[in-house]
Design a protein around this nucleic acid. Structure first.
Lengths: 323, 323
DNA sequence: ATATGATATGTAACAAGTTACATAAAGATA
DNA sequence: TATCTTTATGTAACTTGTTACATATCATAT
């Protein structure tokens, strides 16, 4: 790959002039512009963004850390972020942390070395590791520190809505299948559900799953639940797990929603494709992704950003798995 | 962020010594190593990978272009590639092309500027655009040029297996719902299906869809199919579309597999969660991802790689949507 | 005592770009 | 015509790291 010196030499100008032409900064005469452009095309030259980044101290890259792209929720988030980044000329580094603190730490080291302009963390398991970084960071769901903004949807209210919906449809003997402990969202969904139940003087059962998305493991957990038939309403922490629950219930001859009503969380595309289709709590995924990157870009551009919890509204989507 | 000069000064050595320490190259005394390490920790210094990349001409980054991460097939591919890349210390740039030639071209420009070590293209719509690039490239599904290796699963045989399976289960009046035209895989799946039908002297109908994954648009297309009830077997180009077909059929009171048998393609996780679960043609996604990056890394390391079609075996997964 | 090899470190050139500053020419204004 | 402003270009220093080469020290072998 040729470099700016080569182009300058061939065009018979200095590298400063070529640089000015490339950046549209300073003065370059029309004649010179044409000469330079010709040589650039002849050589198939593309400016080296790495060299540029070293000097300008802005690589125009964003590191996106997610637990697992395979999760429909996260891949929709990635899509929204990629889309936005692309439009404003930023590139995305993708890192799968697999919900592992160790892996997240390792990623962070690599991310630092690439001098990314900003970091989007999601469901972060690290805290102090971020304190030494002087790169703008925004976080999805889990809180990192008091100097990092957190975006999430209103999980607490989501849990509350799930309970109220099931209650309104006549359920009095409910189960909540709770997600893994290290997700803050999990706790809030559960708390919202339980608080709403208490308000009505109803006792609900809670079972905790330690995986969020691996179908086979979810199935294993399900088998351990004793006498699942006794419940008339089940609120599951995400749609994939809800789909697995649905399949399990069908497998033991339980009809949904007549015997058991089922409600998921996220509003993944899968909910619509299930039979019966799944009532769920919608998270505004696209808005979450967009807000995350907007907040990040503002910080990168040194605009003022309020460091706080950004809570986006959840919404109940009524489908066929509830009456 | 501090730099190597600062560390060198603080540790009272030259930058060359610090560089040697960081790279584990050349001699550095134990005493000096300790001094340097102390200063690195004190300053929270991480070497600048961009500067390193300029000199070594290897950024240890890979650009991954995919049509759409939202597609479960592609996100599993990304997972396999990310996993491998991570293990060998490479970082991934992610670009969503949205199956648009224009967007792919734009991405390519950005990718070139970042001097990535290699490119993984998938379902590429470009040809000559790659000829000027002197960066290793591997392609998934669509062919780019005679100098670029292509990895895909055996779509032709997949189509053939789909027909044979439906035929063996008694179907004689079959429909193939074909994917978008610009996917080479689409044509091969169709051809395999049709060729197998011809061999048995059976005529099959073909309907072409122009989207692969947007549920609402898929539903629109479905509504246009006249008298879908007359078929006793439907082979759909992917599992998501098959799920939509299944839902549509259920909606108009058709029982699967008794009235219509259904077979998908890919073996997405969704197939297992449907009711009835979906018979499908499995693509070895993980193997595809791994082979793609293995071939790429070999080329990056200037090892010999055969430039040819790498065809991975497809496999029929029998579930409940066929008899 | 001298030569040889291993260890340790520094200097300076290199990779690719950006930009402050200097300079020069052309055009505009007094 | 003299001066000022605008336009156009170049020089050189700067961003961060790597490495070839030079040099120095020390231990061992002859």
């Amino acid at each position: 790959m040729s470099n700016i010196r080569e182009i300058a030499e061939r065009a018979g100008v200095s590298i400063a002039t070529v640089s000015r032409y490339l950046n549209g900064s300073g003065y370059v005469s029309e004649k010179t512009k044409i000469k330079i452009q010709k040589e650039i095309e002849k050589a198939g030259y593309t400016p080296n963004a790495l060299a540029r980044a070293i000097f300008t101290k802005n690589s125009r890259t964003i590191a996106l850390m997610i637990p697992n792209i395979t999760n429909p929720f996260f891949n929709q988030m990635v899509t929204a972020i990629e889309d936005y980044a692309n439009k404003i000329g930023y590139s995305l580094f993708l890192y799968n942390t697999g919900d592992s603190r160790e892996k997240e730490k390792e990623c962070l080291e690599v991310i630092k070395s690439y001098r990314v302009s900003g970091i989007i963390a999601s469901r972060s398991q690290c805290k102090e590791e971020y304190s030494e970084i002087n790169i703008p960071v925004v976080s999805f769901e889990n809180h990192i520190s008091s100097s990092i903004a957190t975006v999430s949807s209103d999980n607490y209210n989501g849990g509350k809505m799930a309970f109220d919906h099931l209650y309104d449809r006549g359920c009095r003997n409910m189960l909540h299948i709770k997600g893994p402990r290290n997700f803050e969202a999990t706790e809030l969904r559960c708390k919202g559900f339980v608080d709403a139940a208490n308000k009505k003087g109803i006792k609900v059962d809670i079972v905790e799953f330690e995986t969020d998305f691996q179908v086979q493991i979810l199935e294993e957990y399900l088998k351990r639940i004793e006498n699942i038939k006794k419940y008339d309403g089940i609120f599951v922490f995400n749609d994939i797990a809800a789909a697995v629950v649905m399949k399990h219930l069908k497998g033991i001859g339980i009809s949904i929603p007549h015997q058991v009503q089922l409600i998921g969380f996220d509003d993944s595309f899968i909910g619509e494709l299930l039979y019966p289709s799944l009532t769920t709590i919608r998270q505004p995924i696209k808005e979450i992704g967009t807000l995350l990157i907007e907040l990040l870009i503002k910080q990168i551009n040194r605009e003022k950003v309020e460091i706080k919890d950004y809570l986006l509204e959840t919404k109940l989507i009524k489908r066929e798995s509830t009456l």
